[in-house]
Amino acid sequence: MSDFSLRQLQFFVAVVEEGSVTEAASRLRVSPGGVSVAMSQLEATLKVQLILRRRGKGAAVTPAGKWVYDQARKVLEGAEGITSVAAVVRGELAGPLRIGCFSTLSPWLFPRIAAHFAAEHPGIDVQLIEGASAELQARLKAGELDVALLYANHMAGGVTGTEIVPVRLQLALAPGHRLAAREEIWLRELENEEAILLGVQPSMGHVEDILRRAGLRPNVRWRSTNVETIRSMVARGLGYTIIMGRPYGDYTYDGLPLVYRRIADDIPENAVVVAYPEGTTPTAKVRTLIAFCRSEFGAEGQQPDAGRWTSREGMGEL
């Protein structure tokens, strides 16, 4: 059996991927001399030249080195898998947790999820994949994600989920708007006013259906896929929006205030859910995520029209 170490393979993979011994050393936080020695020892053990060291031009991988690189990656990945299995045997949560998140939800949800797992379950590699609900659900069913955080009314066939917190659409206006002093507003009162709406499906279709059912033909002046762009435009008096997300503080990126008002119309109930493929049993990591989300974001005892996310930090409304 060849007498080489996982550490030597790790150094070699880093050199190939970074293109130089110096950059590999920086990535691994070791000295360039240590990397060079490890490379020489590995080449001596395998009796083949793996990289060409070119002064001032980095390191080039040889044809033999390319084949060894592919095998080395597999060996290192296998070693990581063994480490994860050992952690599970010891009762620890470990390994990757691939979380998809609807793009408008991730600023509210993911930072606290990441902080919690970093502090309480450091063996779990929490990964974030943002996107539209349809894309996330397709990736769930394809096995590319473990869970997805999205709205219940976005869920399609083949996906189920656990409710985290009920939410309700709200009306966002500039403080100087003629209706801003009211606590509750009927949608028909916005007739002929310009709207600035989210341009992401299925949210776009849901909101426009609600407006039409209220007898309002929306005059959509602008659309954006970025909620913060919409909020900033509304704050400047360029139109109103129907929105789910409300950051704590009610100010836009450029420091302008917004007001949020309850919609008087009877609108569909909704909730944030942790979704996973139908017919699957949530893993221990997924169950841990669900438990944290329910505790942190306040699903327990919350009513669908309560609006406010109860949490230890004062999350604001959705």
Rank of each mutant, 00 (worst) to 15 (best):
S40F: 02
R90P: 01
V259M: 11
E130S: 04
V68L: 14
V85D: 03
I82Y: 01
G249E: 09
P247I: 06
Y276M: 10
L150Y: 04
V274K: 03
A118F: 03
G34R: 03
P63N: 07
S2M: 02
L97V: 05
R182D: 10
E228F: 15
L97A: 05
V61W: 07
L128V: 04
P257Y: 05
F292V: 00
E23S: 09
M244Y: 14
I196M: 06
G143L: 02
R246D: 15
G301I: 00
S84E: 14
L187F: 00
P277A: 06
N192W: 01
M155N: 06
W309M: 15
G143S: 02
A72T: 14
G123E: 12
Q137C: 05
I124N: 02
H116W: 06
P166Q: 05
E317A: 12
W67D: 13
R27A: 14
G307N: 09
V220K: 12
A79L: 06
S84A: 13
R112M: 06
N226T: 10
L173S: 08
G298C: 10
S84N: 11
S2P: 01
H206E: 11
H121Y: 12
M244L: 15
E135A: 02
I99G: 00
R98H: 03
G279I: 00
L42P: 04
L28V: 08
F102C: 03
